[in-house]
């Protein structure tokens, strides 16, 4: 029966879709989009996997090249900056390893957020898929790539005998905050960059600057009493919610509070944009 297509499965209710420009019901449709995007995570996962495969096609080590280059960078910077800052290597290198690897993940998420919708143009214009799916795909891809660096953190902590301690119990919460932020920023920047093509390069510069003003290669103690100002840096807040559970025994309450507040603000802005402009996205990309 080669020429017979599979009939539509019997008994399944046929979908009913109504769109009225007078009553667009943007809020409920935006929520439905996000719910459907999450429900279809297996598609996002498959796309994220194939993105990674395509990016490293033909390379022997694949994403492990990233691990290798991070390892070399850690060695070089670890020795150099521990001398510059006059810190013990055993004190500095674990800090640098955790900070740098987490930062790489954050900057990748932000950088690729800008193209998460425009790069899927061909699909957006042809399949009525939930837009949140593309944000989930981008975040999954970057978390998966970052996971290749996890062994480095473990190795450095082992070599220098740094035990994370009970603070590690906060890590799931930190990951939750990170995931919410990553999804929000992907959706928000994905939309803005689809509409305004200049925003991508601008974000690139912002992330570059953030790398230097956020304590990654330097420690907050080095700026003395000014370290309270770090609470104003949202990158620091998000980084800290992942870093503190691993090497700072959970960190301090203010940092967590600021991380929660930034997460709420970002998710709020992103959600508001999404509700308002979701219908326009097919025309923007």
């Amino acid at each position: 029966m080669l020429d017979q297509p599979i009939p539509s499965p019997p008994g399944t209710a046929s979908p009913h879709r109504v769109f009225d420009a007078q009553q667009p019901e943007r809020l409920s449709r935006a929520f439905a989009d996000i719910r459907e995007g999450v429900e279809r995570w297996r598609l996002a996962w498959a796309l994220a996997r194939s993105d990674i495969r395509n990016r490293y096609r033909g390379s022997v080590l694949g994403p492990l090249w990233l691990t290798l280059s991070t390892a070399i960078m850690l060695l070089a910077m670890g020795f150099l900056y521990s001398r510059l800052f006059k810190l013990e290597l055993a004190n500095y290198l674990p800090w640098l390893a955790v900070s740098l690897i987490l930062w790489n993940m954050i900057s990748q998420v932000v950088g690729e957020a800008c193209t998460c919708l425009t790069s899927a143009e061909g699909v957006v214009q042809r399949f009525p898929l939930p837009y949140s799916l593309y944000a989930i795909r981008s975040v999954m891809r970057n978390m998966l790539i970052a996971a290749h660096n996890l062994p480095l953190i473990a190795i450095v902590l082992l070599i220098f005998g740094v035990a994370p301690g009970w603070g590690l119990l906060l890590l799931p919460f930190g990951l939750l905050l990170f995931t919410i932020n990553a999804l929000s920023v992907s959706l928000l920047l994905g939309m803005i960059c689809a509409r305004f093509r200049d925003v991508g390069p601008i974000m690139g510069s912002i992330v570059q600057i953030a790398f230097f003003v956020t304590p990654i290669i330097w420690k907050p103690e080095l700026i003395g009493e000014h370290s309270a100002l770090l609470l104003l840096n949202p990158f620091h807040a998000v980084l800290e919610s992942l870093r503190a559970p691993i090497i700072e025994h959970g960190g301090n309450a203010y940092a967590w509070l600021s991380a929660c507040i930034y997460t709420l603000i970002l998710a709020g802005i992103s959600g508001a944009f999404f509700v308002r402009f979701r219908d326009r996205l097919a025309f923007w990309v």
Partner: peptide, 27 residues
């Protein structure tokens, strides 16, 4: 369901199969 109208009302009842672009989504 890809483009949302700026005016008017659209209603579709039934599962949709679109044979619009054959190469869409091919990796």
């Amino acid at each position: 369901g890809i483009y949302a109208p700026v005016a008017g009302r659209l209603e579709v009842q039934g599962s949709i199969g679109s044979l619009i672009d054959p190469s869409a989504g091919i990796d």
